[in-house]
Design a protein around this nucleic acid. Structure first.
Length: 183
DNA sequence: TGCACGATGAAC
DNA sequence: TTCATCGTGCAC
């Protein structure tokens, strides 16, 4: 179980988003590897994407989104939950993929069908922000990639304010998987 | 320095 | 449908 290389993330965000489905998200906590198989993601395409945090440009919070690929962007939402993204494409692009749901594989005891729920179940919080996913205790491994023919494309959740960008089909999930947050 | 609001989840 | 709860970004 080793981290996928940085080249995995240094590609077109849509490609990475689909390729992330079926991969294993791994977080080693107190010597125990918590593992979840990624089954739902959303792509955020950069500053021109009105629904992306990076659309406001480089700020203290979004700086990591504009950094090199293969790093974690973990932010607090509604003052009480955490959400995790992986940074994609070349440095400066401001692209990322939000992890929305995982299927429990190992050492998971709570619900994982939602971006904040998966963070809670895998003990991912603000201390994981800016973490390099290509070496360390938080990473993504090969897993069992989803069949491309089984990938469903839908509009992203909770971005109605983003006009036309809200209607783009940038949410991807594995068809029929019971751990998807909103099938 | 103040304030409106959110890539959510849970309860009602 | 409503609310919890607070960091962020932008207005002033």
């Amino acid at each position: 179980m080793r981290p996928l290389p940085r080249s995995f993330y240094d590609r077109d965000t849509l490609e990475v988003a689909c390729d992330l489905l079926g991969r294993h998200l791994v977080h080693v906590v107190d010597g125990v590897a918590r593992v979840g198989r990624i089954v739902e993601v959303e792509a955020y395409l950069g500053p021109h994407d009105k629904a992306a945090h990076s659309s406001r440009g480089v700020t203290p919070r979004t700086r990591v989104m504009f950094g090199p690929p293969g790093h974690a962007y973990v932010y607090r939402i509604y003052g009480l939950h955490w959400c995790m993204n992986v940074v994609t494409e070349a440095e400066g692009r401001g692209c990322a993929v939000l992890l929305r749901a995982v299927e429990p594989v190992a050492a998971i005891t709570q619900r994982t069908n939602g971006p904040a729920l998966l963070c809670r179940a895998m003990a991912i919080d603000g201390t994981c922000n800016t973490r390099d996913l290509c070496g360390g205790s938080l990473f993504i491994a090969k897993g069992s990639p989803s069949d491309p023919r089984a990938i469903v494309k839908r509009a992203r959740i909770g971005v109605d304010y983003a006009g036309a960008w809200a209607r783009r089909l940038l949410r991807f999930y594995e068809r029929g998987n019971p751990f998807v947050s909103r099938p």
